[in-house]
Nucleic acid binder design. Structure first.
Lengths: 344, 344
DNA sequence: GCCGGTCACGTAAGCGCTTACGTAAGCGCT
DNA sequence: AGCGCTTACGTAAGCGCTTACGTGACCGGC
């Protein structure tokens, strides 16, 4: 394992400036108690020496860590990659570093990663991705986060509620509503949903929006076929097979995220089902490839990169008594994968 | 900024076990100088107390940091996301944490990020993505890395040479060769290359492979139209416009990475050029969406996730006098985006 | 029986920083 | 002049670990 290098230390700066360690520290931290001239001189010398504080020493002494831990389901899922990009970019602007953990959509492993991050003394925890419908895990995570925040840590969630921490919340329900409405406006009557795993709150919320749109139009829930699968491209493929087999009257498939939608499109192509002539397809998230698919995907745009920034912004603010909730807004983006329902 | 929590410390463990700090430290580090029974007892007590060492204190005292810094161009580019997934996963298995920085394909900013990581005292630096054809930056980065390693740090590169550090090197040239060969085997005579920015070594290497395949078949370089653009989907779109305008006789486009290939496909679709009937398209990397595009993309598979693991593996081994180079192998994956050259 | 050599463990000196507290100087006020 | 207050700085005590060195017990060999 590596050893530390011979970089200039704070004492070196202090010596060059002929002041004490304390004064140098205060000057560089921008704290008051140092005259403006002295502070300027110290900062100047630090710059000349190329001094950069040792974050380990700093954290040890002050107890205040400046690294942020980010938990995602899978970093190579574009949804999380875009969120991570936002977090990393904003963190870099703030001089913070980001440590990333993958939970692999496993609640138990996620909890373990969370504990690991906290044990590693990160100052801020950001936890992204759908919550789980597993009360034990959610309660445990909630407790862990509460204790973390009680000891001065800060935490924020992206896309999940019920964690008792500040949260950036995508308009899952409204988005689902808008998608169903769009399809019904096009004349579709038999809809199918390629839903992610039961047990993911995001899935439940988006689905609720879809159902609610149907209800509003006086459609029976029987008009809606819901098929569950993994929240991935492979899951979308499997769901499509099942929809084609079990619900052949379907004219539009609502995939509850873009990854599944890509699987849906892929299988429809393989089965030679023309989109949108014979079958319309919509996704959710608007990951950046969605516009470049063939056909380009109608979907709900979520500002993932912004969401990452927003979550970190929340976490950088002091804690409030009641956790804040920041909705993201959403936008229906109509592209080539949806069209009028086929005449029968 | 957060304050440290009230977690158990090493003294607590030592007290419970009625041994000294030193003994407790040695036992938990698995170092010798402690009898087996005492060591077991200490480890047992640590487990019961839920003791986890404070990495800041540990690093400060030992000078050996156990976090790895990973520099990527853009985390929301699937190529880098998959590499990052491999690094993070393997790091988690080793109990290491990964800090990620984005360079945004800007050599200057990349150098800055590199310095930042080193200043933050990471123990290992992993630097991924194409190198730049900018001697000043490369020399500076090289010097920075050499100094870092001389002070005990470890570094490895993914997909770039000339940095004087261990490297995992994709078969860029051989891959380019295989792609061109595949297309020529299908009867294509007028090829165009949608190349990334000049100045990226990856672009140069892949292009060299293509040229070399043409030369081997006795084709003149004039048969190859090379158009440069950003190494992104947008760059692929722009390059395609230019190819269609300036080189209408082209029957096959070689995109030098999958991102560009997606842009190529997208523009061809918009211009109603049938693929592969009228135009064949190949990519490079085999990012996971490549198989789900329409048409699915013929490309060169690189084991990105494996490459991430391999780089960290190299960095965990002690340094050798001459930097190691580990080739990745490659595989031509033929899918639906390539077909026989159209009869004229 | 004594000596050098292990071995198991304790003592204590840091690692580089932050910060509570102490102090001396300068100010305005009575 | 004396008081208390503020300001600008220094002193020194840690933060929680690692590790060089010290020490006593024990062992084998002469």
């Amino acid at each position: 394992m590596p050893r530390a290098s011979q970089r200039p230390r704070l004492v070196d700066v202090a010596e060059h400036a002929a002041v004490s360690l304390a004064t140098a520290s205060r000057a560089l931290a921008g704290r008051q108690g140092v005259s403006a001239e002295v502070a300027d001189r110290i900062r100047q010398i630090a710059r000349e020496l190329g001094y950069v504080a040792n974050p380990y020493a700093r954290t040890l002494a002050s107890g205040a860590s400046s690294t942020v831990g980010l938990i995602v389901h899978q970093i190579d899922d574009p949804y999380f990659a875009e969120i991570a990009a936002g977090v990393i970019q904003f963190a870099a602007e703030q001089g913070l570093l980001v440590q990333i953990c993958q939970s692999g959509r496993d609640p138990g492993y996620e909890l373990q990663q969370l504990r690991h991050l906290i044990a590693q003394r990160v100052g801020i925890v950001l936890i992204s991705g759908s919550g789980y419908d597993d009360p034990r895990m959610e309660v445990a995570a909630r407790a862990e986060l509460a204790a973390f925040q009680d000891h001065g840590g800060r935490a924020a969630a992206i896309g999940r509620h019920a964690l008792g921490i500040d949260a950036v919340l995508p308009d899952n329900e409204a988005g689902g509503f808008a998608l169903a409405q769009h399809l019904m406006d096009l004349g579709h009557r038999r809809l199918a949903v390629a839903a992610g795993s039961t047990g993911l709150t995001t899935v439940a919320d988006r689905l609720a929006g879809v159902s609610s749109a149907l209800r509003q139009r006086g459609r029976s829930p029987a008009d809606l076929a819901v098929v569950h699968g993994d929240f991935t491209r492979a899951g979308g493929r499997a769901a499509t097979e099942q929809i084609l087999n079990d619900h052949p009257e379907t004219t539009a498939i609502i995939a509850l995220n873009d990854a599944m939608a890509m699987g849906v499109l892929s299988t429809l192509r393989a089965r030679r089902v023309p989109v949108p002539a014979r079958m319309s397809v919509v996704g959710f998230d608007d990951v950046s490839v969605a516009a470049d698919l063939a056909p380009s995907l109608t979907t709900i745009r979520l500002p993932m990169t912004e969401m990452g920034r927003a979550a970190l912004t929340l976490a950088l603010k002091p804690r409030t008594t009641r956790p804040r909730r920041r909705p993201t807004g959403h936008l229906l983006v109509v592209r080539d994968s949806t069209g009028p329902a086929p005449k029968t």
